[in-house]
Design a protein around this nucleic acid. Structure first.
Lengths: 203, 203
DNA sequence: GAATATACCTAGCAAGCGCTTGGTTTGTAA
DNA sequence: TTACAAACCAAGCGCTTGCTAGGTATATTC
């Protein structure tokens, strides 16, 4: 006789990538990015990790919860990395560059698929989940806005921090559609291009 | 006794917005943008235009063909408008500004919903349809690239036209997520911000 | 006034979907 | 050895989906 234990949902921290849950999240990010959330079935996801479709629901209560978890962990990882990189930086111009570089890495590095899912599959979240994820995003955006505001009062940039951040969000996130890390151009080169567009001189 | 006539697919030109097909396309753009293509059912679309779900297939052979038509007409309309506006412009800097302004209007004006669908629902097209739409996009992108290349050889911009165009694509298309035409900022203001970021002086 | 085309309706099929249920296997630790 | 939880399987339910079939109403054209 077996008893039902509710599938766990929001762990306090990151998921171990080698755990069954971690492998599931990685494959989910890949499939959701590749085919879109709605066009990815739980059967697709299950066979990608080599289990039966029903077994998914031992790890997550619903399909949507998988999507939410993918987004959640992506933001948490990238907010954390941004924070720790900023600690080593005093100069404001250098701080802006650090943020640009971090965001390019988020988008084009290991968490890239999850970040793309975050942008493209937003509407597939319920309103409750959207609010939950939005809260995490606001922490991330707060760091950006603080830094840009400092750059403005230091006279490094002319534009409104709000508007500049929005142009940057678009320009940087769009790199996922065309930038190929295996090509000639490095992420550092990319960041250089951005910085020269912003008229901020190298530190 | 009724005989089957295949539903029409690609008309030579634009669809009359007042025709049943036109109304369907407008509602489709709206719903696809609002809820996403996959989450919009033919029943949703039918009831939005006030007909039965089966009647949709009198006008389009498949649901995907509706998506394709939405994208097709959006590109055609905007390529046409861009072309005609450029005719009145000689100065290269002014030409760049015209393109920026046109694209902002495409994204935030009447065709905005269709343009958003073009960006967000790309993966819902079959490969064959993707190729078809890509051909139309390449005409549009050709105009951009010609103009930016001219601006570069005139010394107006420093960046590679290819890369600059990509940054611009991202930054401009992202405006749909935050810019509100009914607010204080006009599209001209927005274009001004972009031009100042590109260091191109007013004509 | 017969023929034809357009625009729609009613009813429903076949397939695919997320998810549930009840159970088995495997690993860990007392 | 027994106890127990985590990880998974096999089967399938109930519902929604895109789409089809066969028919009707109305307007236009010859």
């Amino acid at each position: 006789m077996s008893q039902e234990m509710a599938a766990p949902s929001d762990p306090p921290s990151f998921t171990d990538p080698e755990s069954p849950r971690g492998r599931l999240l990685r494959q989910a990010a890949h499939l959701f990015r590749d085919k879109g959330y709605e066009r990815t079935t739980v059967r697709d996801l299950a066979s990608a990790v080599g289990i039966q479709s029903g077994s998914i629901f031992h790890h997550f209560r619903t399909k949507e919860e998988i999507l939410k978890a993918v987004m959640r962990e992506a933001i948490l990882v990238n907010t954390g990395r941004m924070r720790s990189r900023l600690e080593a930086v005093a100069d404001t111009g250098e701080a802006v560059r650090t943020l640009v570089q971090c965001e390019l890495e988020s988008i084009n590095g290991e968490t890239g698929e999850a970040m793309a899912v975050l942008v493209y599959e937003w509407r597939s979240l319920s309103e409750a989940s959207q609010a939950e994820i939005l809260e995490l995003r606001e922490v991330y955006e707060g760091i950006w806005l603080d830094t840009l505001t400092r750059a403005k009062s230091d006279g490094l940039i002319e534009a409104e921090p709000f508007i500049l951040r929005r142009f940057l969000t678009g320009a940087l996130s769009w790199t996922i559609t065309w930038y190929r890390p295996e090509g000639d151009m490095t992420i550092e080169n990319l960041a250089d291009h951005v910085m020269s567009m912003l008229k901020i001189p190298p530190a």
